[in-house]
Design a binder for these strands. Structure first.
Length: 644
RNA sequence: GCCGGCUUAGCUCAGCUGGUAGAGCACCUGAUUUGUAAUCAGGGGGUCGGGGGUUCGAGUCCCUCAGCCGGCACCA
């Protein structure tokens, strides 16, 4: 007999050889039906896998989050089987569950095309209908390697060869088909259902290394039921509508063209938005004890050799030379070394520290062509960069203040919860362990004080110091790094930055590299997507359109427009001979926050009818002109000015 | 950079197995003076991404270059 303890503490006794499915069936029919896998002493366990002794058991059901992961993983196996059925000679590699679905990487000379999806999905459905049981088998390592080699599955054989010696090799079968897999799986293919869909094909390197062969990855999505699948597909459609590249065109914010790959042509509306954000940021920095500087765009190659960037990033730097001269200049890919030059002018004392030096630094990097992505990843961009020169003892305070500032800025832009990634010392690094200890502790303390969730990436720090990165998501769930703060013990040394301490000796300052928005371009991309183009009043490039109903109100409309413009509002007037319905629709689609409608009535009364964009309850207000202007003026203040 | 796909009017897209370009919106003109998400009529507009090839004939097929899109890799 085996003794099992359930999560609520109750105990059950079952015969030897019993399985979690037996346990669930003994409790209730519905539990047995909803069961997906079990946790046996914390380990994932197939429902049909017999217990191996007394244990603590939890039954995971379709209601649990983990259920989807299991279903997605199962679906990946079914995809692999279907592909091998239909395309003999294709090798399988790996196929994990991911967010919203799964993928499977195949090795095949012929490319897959989305036109193959229909046939593959059909075959997958047949495998589900066949209700093949998933059977777990433990294999001897060498036998498994030999078996997969004999099957022509080189990649699987390699995977097994690289598994740790003490790892149990498990094989899962479904019908004739088998795969190396850790599990767990559902009892049979029929339990998966058909709420899956193949989404896209893509290339992916074997083991994520570009020196390896490129495999073909098929992505799919899988859900508990048809309704969830439909909802997911709908979400994707909606998300595509808020893509900043699409909105950028619709709202006439910016464009790209091939002669300036990866660089932005900002249009009047987009540039207005850009400047609004930049000016806001400038005020916030000034209020927080930063000084602003501006440094050159082109610097001699020798300078970048001294900073160490030439060696490491030469491939990604734009360079320039003039015929008559032998000098090679490089367009700056970053601002830090330039800031050290400003620091190094004259003498610095400990009394000058911390010195917070900011620049809206225009940088250029020759990013790989495949990585370019709208405003999110460009070759020419402006960082809201700053470097804080301070002592080791000042790190904690400075990082904490930075996190607070960042959080406040993000709230002002409508991002409530940026995610933080903390990366600590890598194997290869400079600086003593003692200093690293201090710096890491300072970053962690600041991250914790901020109250935001943070994720720990061990060993992911820069060679010169640990860092905190701030990450937000775009419309379709892709994550983009925006803010960052990095401790640097290296550059001050390389570029010989010193200050005179209390003891009258020379000391090295620590440099904190930090950016709140990251790059203006990327941040604007994320901002546009976050609001789906419906920017809040203070950010909207076109805030108000004064729209007439009949030409009788033309003169008055012009007067309204002029008064609003004089009050600093961004306002246009629409006197076209069109129906008010037409104008309202056009400017609503154009995401103008406020339409000021004027007809004969308003002209006579000196009023305006304000119509606000959005589906809230506040859709229309008729106000005397002066009062309307006061109100709009107050609303158009940036959040920091509203607080002041 | 790598794998795959795409590139037709200002925008969004249609053009079957090759026979010499089409829609909606936008734009222009005219009529209409209208009260909160599309008034009607007429008109103009494309060397079908660039280059080369096959063919009697190429937007359609082939080669090549570029850009874009989806992933991967990269991201100081």
């Amino acid at each position: 007999m085996i003794n099992l303890t359930l999560p609520d503490g109750s105990k059950r006794e079952l015969a030897d050889g019993a399985t979690p499915f037996d346990l669930a069936s003994g409790i209730s029919k519905s539990l047995a039906k909803a069961a997906v896998i079990a946790k046996v002493d914390g380990e994932d366990w197939d429902l049909m896998r017999p217990f191996e002794g007394d244990a603590e058991v939890a039954i995971i059901t379709r209601k649990d989050e983990e259920a989807l992961e299991v279903i997605r993983h199962d679906t990946a196996h079914i995809l692999a089987q279907a592909v091998q059925d239909l395309f003999p000679g294709t090798q399988v590699t790996i196929g994990p569950a991911i967010e919203d679905g799964f993928y499977y990487d195949f090795a095949r000379n012929e490319p897959f095309s989305t036109e193959d999806f229909e046939a593959i999905e059909k075959r997958m459905a047949e495998i589900v209908d066949a209700d093949l049981p998933f059977q777990r088998e433990v294999w001897d390592r060498n036998e498994a390697i030999a078996k997969f080699k004999a099957m022509g599955e080189q990649y699987k054989a390699e995977l097994i060869e690289d598994l740790p010696e003490d790892e149990t090799i498990t094989i899962y079968r479904q019908g004739e088909w088998m795969d190396l897999c850790r599990g767990p799986h559902l009892p049979s293919t029929g339990k998966i259902g058909k709420a899956f869909k193949l989404m896209k094909v893509a290339g992916a390197y074997w083991r994520g290394d570009h020196r390896n062969a490129q495999l073909q990855r098929i992505y799919g999505t899988a859900w508990l039921d048809e309704k969830q699948l439909k909802a997911h597909l709908h979400r994707i459609e909606e998300a595509e509508k808020r893509d900043h590249r699409r909105l950028g065109k619709q709202m006439e914010l910016f464009h790209f063209q091939e002669e300036a790959q990866g660089q932005v042509f900002w249009h009047p509306a987009g540039w207005t938005l850009y400047r609004t954000v930049e000016n806001y940021m400038r005020r916030r920095l000034e209020d927080n004890g930063y000084v602003e500087i501006k440094t050159p765009q082109l610097m001699d190659r020798k300078f970048w050799e001294a900073s160490g960037h030439w060696d490491k990033y030469r491939e990604n730097m734009f360079i320039s030379s003039i015929d008559e001269e032998e000098k090679v200049l490089a367009v700056k890919p970053m601002n830090c070394p330039c800031h050290v030059q400003v620091f190094n002018q004259g003498q610095k004392s400990y009394r000058d520290l911390p010195l917070r030096m900011a620049e809206f630094g225009s940088c250029h990097r020759y990013e790989p062509s495949g990585s370019l992505h709208g405003l999110m990843r460009v070759r020419g961009f402006v960082q809201d960069d700053a470097h804080i020169f301070c002592t080791v003892d000042q790190i904690t305070e400075e990082v904490t203040a930075f996190c607070e500032l960042l959080k406040s800025v993000y709230e002002d832009f409508g991002f409530e919860e940026p995610r933080i990634k903390f990366s600590d010392r890598p194997e290869q690094r400079v600086g003593s362990d003692e200093v690293w200890d201090k710096a890491e502790a300072a970053l962690v303390a600041a991250a914790e004080a901020s109250g935001l969730d943070y994720e720990h990436n061990p060993g992911d720090g820069a060679f010169y110091g640990p860092k905190l990165d701030f990450v937000v998501r775009d419309a379709i769930g892709r994550e983009w790094q925006t803010g960052t703060i990095q401790c640097d013990f290296n550059l001050p040394e390389r570029l010989d930055a010193v200050y005179v301490g209390e003891d009258a000796d020379k000391h090295r300052p620590v440099m904190l590299h930090r950016a709140i928005l990251g790059s203006l371009e990327r941040f604007l991309g994320v901002l546009i997507e976050n609001y789906a183009g419906k920017l809040p009043f203070w950010l909207a490039p076109r805030q108000i359109v004064v729209a007439t109903i009949t030409s009788d109100a033309d003169d008055y409309a012009q007067e309204v427009k002029d008064k609003m413009a004089a009050a600093g509002l961004r306002v246009d007037v629409d006197l076209r001979n069109e129906k008010i319905n037409y104008k309202v629709r056009e400017h609503s689609v154009g995401k103008i926050p406020v339409i000021a409608v004027v007809g004969r009535k308003e002209a006579e009364e000196g009023a305006v009818a304000l119509r606000f964009l959005g589906d809230g309850n506040r859709t229309q207000e008729v106000l005397p002109l002066d009062q309307a202007i006061d109100q709009l003026k107050a609303e158009s203040l940036a959040p920091d000015l509203k607080r002041a």
